[in-house]
Design a protein around this nucleic acid. Structure first.
Lengths: 204, 204
DNA sequence: GGCCGCCCCTGACATTTGTCATGGCGAGTG
DNA sequence: CACTCGCCATGACAAATGTCAGGGGCGGCC
């Protein structure tokens, strides 16, 4: 038999991470060599233990799964990355794939299934959850231009136009124009509803 | 030895639920008799299997953990409820306690620890995560009146004042006044920031 | 080179907001 | 009973926001 697949597990929820480590450890061709609770910690552990597959939660303190994946691809090209997420939004999937992630699954899969997917990813293949993939396709690409998205993001926390303008180094009038066109493109009632929509679709 | 503690596990994330079931099942004084992925399902399973302790995720499709807990207290008074949550917000803890929940812990605890807490709760005692308790105390009570909270909630999705007024059966002027006083009380810049703050503190 | 889309700005306008002053009504409290 | 507080409303004014009509510059593409 070939040597077991060495895993890195990163999730800020200890309950899940521990449980997962226990269950995956039961599979005799998988072995968990490191665990982490934050993005930076995951990177450090990866450097130290050089796992074959990194199973990363999408939302972690410090740096999210995609950011970690990006660094990982650069530093440990031999390490495949699998992202696990609670509530997957279409945009994340797109970002993840762009970052070189090989697998993307929701936490609604069973541990048994996850083990299979880990093997798939380790073999060099990709695995994207069909439902998430369908969502991503139906949501389509963002109709927003770079500036529109940027301004919309700055508007996310309810900041007034003047502040957005300052932070984006734009004139207030321009900001209102971008906001207006973004709102129109998204078919929203106002900028705040637009922010919500864009978030839901992962466009910000 | 006394008979084992019968558990109901409810969480929409199959990965976690399954892993948890496996780990808790290893404890020889605990036995998982039912699992559910949604609020209504959890209720149905509880009715069918009459567990001693129900371990509920706070956020589930259908009905959240607190709502399920409320129904459970009414229908199965002998069943203790323990709520597990990913990102605990102060207000939820307060609502949960009001609903008769006996335990409230974040998902950052270990499975070992969770098992102990289940025993504590089953023995009729309460267990509240110290950190969440501290947050709840420091956040304090909502300074908002019932109407202010209601109007603020209706304003959550970025609806214009006119729509809020109609939905709340109030005059637009009144709505603006409530919004204004809520914003002032929360020390926010505008209604949208106020909504965010109130959400963070669990006041809406 | 002309066309088009994105970028950035200006100015003007209507609408929507936030804020303030003010008043009446009912419930609970000293 | 007077007082306070929450509730609901009106009206008025200032500020922020949404919308429209422009115009100039830049880069890619037929």
């Amino acid at each position: 038999m070939t040597s077991p697949v060495r895993l890195l597990l990163a999730d800020d929820e200890h309950l899940i991470r521990g449980a997962l480590a226990a269950l995956l450890g039961l599979e005799d061709d998988l072995v968990v060599v490191a665990e982490a609770a934050t993005g930076p910690e995951a990177l450090a552990m990866a450097r130290a233990h050089r796992p074959d597959v990194a199973v990363l939660d999408l939302q972690m303190p410090g740096a999210d799964g995609v950011r970690v994946a990006t660094s990982l691809r650069a530093e440990l090209p031999g390490c495949q990355v699998l992202i696990v997420t609670g509530h997957g939004r279409p945009g994340h999937l797109k970002r993840a794939l762009a970052a070189g992630v090989r697998g993307f699954v929701p936490k609604t899969v069973s541990a048994q299934r996850l083990a299979e997917i880990i093997r798939t990813v380790h073999a060099g293949n990709r695995y994207i959850d069909p439902e998430l993939a369908a969502d991503a396709i139906s949501a389509g690409d963002s109709p927003l231009t770079a500036r529109e998205a940027e301004v919309l993001e700055l508007a996310a926390d309810g900041a007034p136009v003047a502040e957005i303008a300052e932070r984006a180094a734009l004139s207030p009038g321009t900001v209102r124009n971008y906001l207006s066109s973004a709102v129109t493109k998204l078919g929203a009632e106002n900028r705040h509803a637009a922010v919500r929509l864009a978030r839901e679709r992962g466009w910000v």
